[in-house]
Design a protein around this nucleic acid. Structure first.
Lengths: 232, 232
DNA sequence: TCAAAAGTGTTTAGATTACACCCATGT
DNA sequence: ACATGGGTGTAATCTAAACACTTTTGA
């Protein structure tokens, strides 16, 4: 965190923070990481992990640093959600925040409460508590952008384990888009696309033809598919 | 603009600016508004109109104010492009900017050089001069987001005159997406969608069955179509 | 034994793409 | 007369949506 001191400027400046909306999937539901704030304002209130921008880092770097400090998590996928600047969004004074969305894999979600946080917990995206600041607005926007990312990028595989089943993947889609998908069409679509590679299962694991088949994301196929799209 | 004085804070703060990427269509090409900077840094260099965030306004309000001050333009369509925070993007010191994209109609493009600008000119999006700061990066991102907006919103009609022809509209699409569209399929698609209403042309104007037909955007039809999409 | 979950295939409708001709205007 | 631009239609392909049955597992 920046050092306390005396900073003097010729013109007014706002305080600038970053916030992290961290998504994860527990095999059933899409979850979001919240921390219980240990300090005022909004003490004991749930909020997204975040903090002030430092002098020697970009906004994205700040988001990664705060995420690491407050929850111990790192992520490959990090995307800007937007800038939020309502005049009264922070009772401490004029503060603007830039929110980032990130996703972490299920087996890497051992988040711990860090510096400023009394507690850290995953909440189902559809069962969120009251949030501090304008974080509810940020949350809506982050989910909206996650949907866009699902449509245009392979972010879904950053939420799933390296090895996953189609029913799992469908549950994730259902939660992200808040709607049902036809199982047959869902499977057909992804299998036909060729971006899923079945994982060779040993004879022991092949319990039956009706236990879920395990797949892996085929990054090369995806890149190839993307090429074809862009050519057109 | 904010008043010069002495502002003291306990922690470091960055300067915060807004920038406007203003798009317009001259009937042939997609253009972007640039101003020639009258002051250092990057004096005499072309840049997007923008300036510092004031204490009593949101980022969006600041973008609208700066646009008005520097070019006299107002716009209905204004969308955030993103926050840019590279450490060395402004030689005056650490500055982060939030860029906004906006569009104005052709007959409202009588932009004039304002306060800080020596000159203001429209440039074809594909024939831009060297830009100040990291504005080339911002420009690429803004065009990318404009494409997304073309796909998901009726922003195209905010760029066209209230009354327009399909060949005009197609030229705009061609410039925005940097690719050709099949004229027959293009027309079929938009006519079938029902969001275009032909403008009744007086007998005099109907020179021939082969002069372009004029249309108007049917906002009600569009809203109706959108409803149907969301229901699914 | 019964409910729940998962595998599989076909058919239809809609959307997208490719493609050719005619007419009018202006050079 | 010829090139340019603009109006129109049809066939083929691909994509999306709807929909039913069988097997396994666990309660």
């Amino acid at each position: 965190m920046g050092e306390k001191g005396v900073y003097t400027y010729d013109y007014w400046r706002p305080a600038v923070t970053v916030d992290n909306v961290v998504f994860s999937f527990d095999g059933t539901h899409l979850n979001v990481l919240l921390i219980k704030r240990g300090n005022e304002p909004f003490k004991d209130c749930w909020a997204f992990p975040g903090g002030f921008l430092d002098e020697d880092e970009t906004l994205e770097e700040a988001a990664r640093r705060e995420l690491k400090e407050e929850t111990g998590l790192t992520t490959k996928y990090l995307n800007e959600v937007g800038a939020f600047s309502d005049l009264d969004r922070d009772p401490r004074g004029r503060t603007i925040t830039v929110a980032f969305a990130s996703v972490v894999q299920p087996n890497k979600t051992a988040a711990v409460a860090g510096d400023d946080a009394k507690d850290a917990r995953w909440f189902n995206i559809h069962e969120m508590p009251k949030l501090a600041f304008d974080h509810e607005k940020i949350c809506r926007m982050a989910l909206w952008k996650l949907r866009i990312a699902f449509i245009n990028t392979p972010v879904v595989f950053a939420l799933l384990n390296d090895i996953f089943t189609l029913p799992e993947m469908q549950r994730l889609y259902t939660d992200v888009f808040s709607r049902e998908f036809d199982r047959r069409n869902f499977q057909k679509k992804f299998l036909a696309s060729g971006i899923l590679t079945p994982v060779a299962q040993s004879d022991e694991e092949k319990k039956s033809p009706h236990s879920p088949i395990q797949y892996r994301f085929n990054e090369a196929s995806y890149a190839h598919l993307r090429e074809k799209m862009l050519r057109c």
